[in-house]
Design a protein around this nucleic acid. Structure first.
Length: 418
DNA sequence: TGACGTCAAGATCCG
DNA sequence: CGGATCTTGACGTCA
């Protein structure tokens, strides 16, 4: 069982992706964007390895215009050594990666130009995973596409296109139910035609159930048989409805109690679970820690180190409560810990709390900062206290100091990033 | 023709 | 100047 997240991180330094507009996409620009993005990918892989995250989706945007004639760069060759090095790290960490072209890659489109571009896009994704020297269990996840008023016909067109794909693509391709047209029942039928493994997406299924009713775990079992020996562990996508947002919108964070209920219901299934959630790695670590075999409190202490100043700012009472909770080093109150963090993050910002948290963080620098920095910080703090600014300028300054004075522990604090 | 979804670039305004 | 808040771009389908 691995639990992972998609594409981007929250609060991991130097992991951002850059792109440009089509009209600015010249060779030099693309080369430097790709160099930057591969460095970010390597930093993400390092972070994942250090944090026990063994499932990760690589963003399609890592190569800007990766399947467009705008990008003629031989990036596999130009960055061959980087790909090899990053691929080795993935393998060494026992990590499984994937890619997922978005809703605009439509293989079954009746418009031949659109389906042709979809093929090119899939080939780009396969080329990327090949460049990392990853095996075929590192999948490309794809939706079936549009229904065009005749789902049967659209499904047949998908199967026809699938059969014509290069084996480098086909061996990696897995198909997923969507929230509009193709239900899990439809996708299982298409799998019967094509042999492609099926990814069950619980939220898409809740929005677009189709077929005969069944529990999530029932459908997951139904998908299990589509995964062959070379395909690796069966994968599912898991997400939760964002409260108050439109149907199908992903939540900001995974609510741990709902996740654990789901997790109990699929107990015994050997699955890889890809979380689709705004706070990305944060929810991944949460769910990993709450289902870990090694119930060591240092897992929680480590995550607490990243949350603590954020929680101090959001809800000082919860800060104190969590400190109490973690005092018993023989216990492993993972769910209780994350439940408190979820609760604290719902609190409204309070100026006094912001000042208090900023002063705490300032404690790292009060003996090392020079006179100019001291003056600057306290001027910033006074403005915050007077309600003349948000806490952003203070935080920005403290982050700058953390970088200058190499406070590694502080640099990883979510206080700066949420 | 605009909504849909996503995230970064780019533009603009404010103090 | 930094920060906050738009708008645009890039994609295809569907109402």
């Amino acid at each position: 069982m691995s639990i992972g997240y998609a594409c981007l991180s929250v609060g991991v330094p130097e992991t951002g992706f850059k792109t440009c507009t089509q009209k600015n996409a010249d060779r030099d620009r693309l080369r430097s964007l790709i160099a930057h993005n591969l460095t970010s990918l390597e930093n993400l892989i390092d972070y994942n390895a250090e944090n026990n995250i063994r499932l990760f989706r690589i963003s399609s945007d890592i190569i800007p215009f990766g399947s467009s004639p705008v990008n003629q760069l031989a990036w596999q060759d130009l960055f061959g050594e980087d790909f090899t090095r990053i691929g080795e790290k993935i393998r060494t960490a026992g990590m499984r990666v994937s890619m997922h072209p978005g809703q605009y890659t439509v293989l079954n489109s009746p418009d031949e130009d659109i389906s042709r571009r979809a093929v090119l896009d899939l080939e780009f994704h396969a080329r990327f995973l090949d460049a990392l020297h990853t095996g075929p269990e590192n999948k490309i996840v794809l939706h079936i596409g549009g229904a065009y008023g005749n789902k049967q016909e659209a499904a047949r067109r998908f199967a026809g296109m699938y059969a014509g794909l290069d084996s480098a693509v086909r061996q990696r391709l897995v198909i997923e139910n969507d929230e509009k047209s193709f239900s899990i029942r439809d996708v299982l039928d298409i799998s019967g035609e094509t042999g492609a493994p099926v990814v069950f997406d619980n939220l898409h299924h809740a929005v677009n159930p189709g077929g005969t009713p069944g529990s999530d775990s029932g459908w997951i079992r139904a998908c299990a048989g589509t995964w062959g020996t070379g395909d690796g562990r069966q994968k599912i996508h898991y997400s939760q409805q964002a409260p108050g947002k439109k149907t199908g919108a992903h939540s900001d964070s995974i609510r741990i109690d709902d996740f654990l209920t789901f997790y109990q219901s699929i107990h015994g299934e050997e699955l890889d679970i890809m979380l689709e959630v705004k706070d990305k790695n944060l929810s991944a670590v949460k769910c990993i820690n709450c289902t870990a075999d090694a119930r060591q409190i240092n897992l929680l202490e480590r995550d607490w180190g990243r949350y603590k100043y954020l929680i101090l700012e959001q809800a000082p009472a919860v800060y104190r409560e969590i400190r109490e909770l973690l005092k018993n080093r023989a216990a492993y109150p993972a769910a209780a810990f994350y439940r408190l963090i979820e609760y604290a993050l719902t609190a409204e910002a309070d100026r006094g709390n912001s000042v208090n948290a900023a002063e705490h963080v300032w404690g790292y620098f009060k003996n090392t900062a020079d006179e100019r920095e001291k003056k600057q910080f306290f001027r910033c703090l006074e403005k915050l206290e007077a309600g003349e600014t948000s806490s952003a300028p203070c935080k920005h300054m403290l982050l700058h100091l953390a970088q200058k004075y190499r406070q590694k522990y502080l640099l990883a604090s979510l206080y700066f990033y949420i």
